[in-house]
Design a protein around this nucleic acid. Structure first.
Lengths: 165, 165
DNA sequence: CGATATATGTCAATGCATTGATATGACAAA
DNA sequence: TTTGTCATATCAATGCATTGACATATATCG
């Protein structure tokens, strides 16, 4: 296809005209960064809310629930966080054991249970907001508002690719 | 402090003039994306090299070693991958158990051991390159070359923030 | 009603990741 | 040589994450 002679570089799988073009070393570096950033986020995020013995995964659940007074079904949480049911169940068990959440029957669907914050959970979530905001501010100190938006958009695209690959 | 009337928005911790300005919901979304992307990468990455029973973490180690014929010390690998020693030791143990790597004494420093690919490890790494390239191509299909570079740079900055927060 | 699909949960195995405490062996400086 | 540091390793506890198989209860469709 397209024009003359043999390419100088060895063939790369899925090489397209512009989009879909992937250099191995660039991709490799990109996913290494993703890996490192994720581990750093969990490690230092957990440290910031260490006084409560919470983790980033737990605060992700609490944050999702705090925005929805009615609560969320397990199915909704799975789709929101993109976790396996078995994994999420374990996280919810730990949160329930500390009385931060409760599982109540969905009046509209007997199969479903609504997960929602308990009063204690709301108090803890409110108290954790401060160290979380401080963590966010520190972690994003090197990025301006426009860059944060850009990073969000690029990770959205990456997520799309990672879901279908 | 600075000027007139009461701010319309509730105060956000660490609000600065331009840099270091962080809106909670933007940051929250950003770290959720990071969380999701990382999980998707591990899940689907492992699936792509499932024929070898390998994981993304393992291929990160193999890839690092493949680029360095002399091998790397554990300390180097820890700094490269940003993992705890205990965690990395376990990954190396699994790789060694399959005879993909070997730990040899560093002739220049008796304390140190050089980790390097075995012959079998080199063969497996060479064979895994293809499914890994296919994974990279699929995952990055939605991003052009410029966007990949941009994403790399933004994640570099994010990593910097996450290391010091 | 019966069959099917949906929503949740459980049990088990494996791997990744952290922290904290402890130990061993080798280098290096006092 | 003694002291201190560095590099590696181990043991233990806890939490996160996946897959696969199985169980139970409710809803829905035929």
């Amino acid at each position: 296809m397209q024009s003359r002679a043999i390419a100088k570089r060895p063939p790369i799988a899925g090489a397209g005209p512009l989009r879909g073009r992937v250099r191995f070393d660039v991709a490799n570096r990109l996913f290494l960064r993703l890996y490192q950033c994720s581990n750093l986020m969990h490690k230092n995020g957990a440290r910031h809310v260490g006084a409560y013995g919470a983790t980033t995964q737990q605060w992700a659940v609490l944050g999702a629930l705090a925005a929805r007074a009615k609560g969320m079904s397990v199915k909704d949480l799975i789709e929101f966080l993109l976790l396996s049911r078995q994994n999420l169940t374990a996280v919810l068990d730990r949160l329930e054991a500390r009385s931060w959440i409760e599982r109540v029957k969905d009046p509209e669907d007997g199969r479903s249970r609504l997960i929602r914050l308990s009063e204690e959970g709301e108090r803890v979530w409110a108290a954790m907001r401060e160290p979380i905001e401080s963590f966010y501010a520190g972690a994003l100190a090197g990025l301006g508002e426009a860059e944060q938006t850009q990073l969000n958009e690029l990770m959205d695209k990456l997520k799309g690719g990672l879901e279908t690959v």
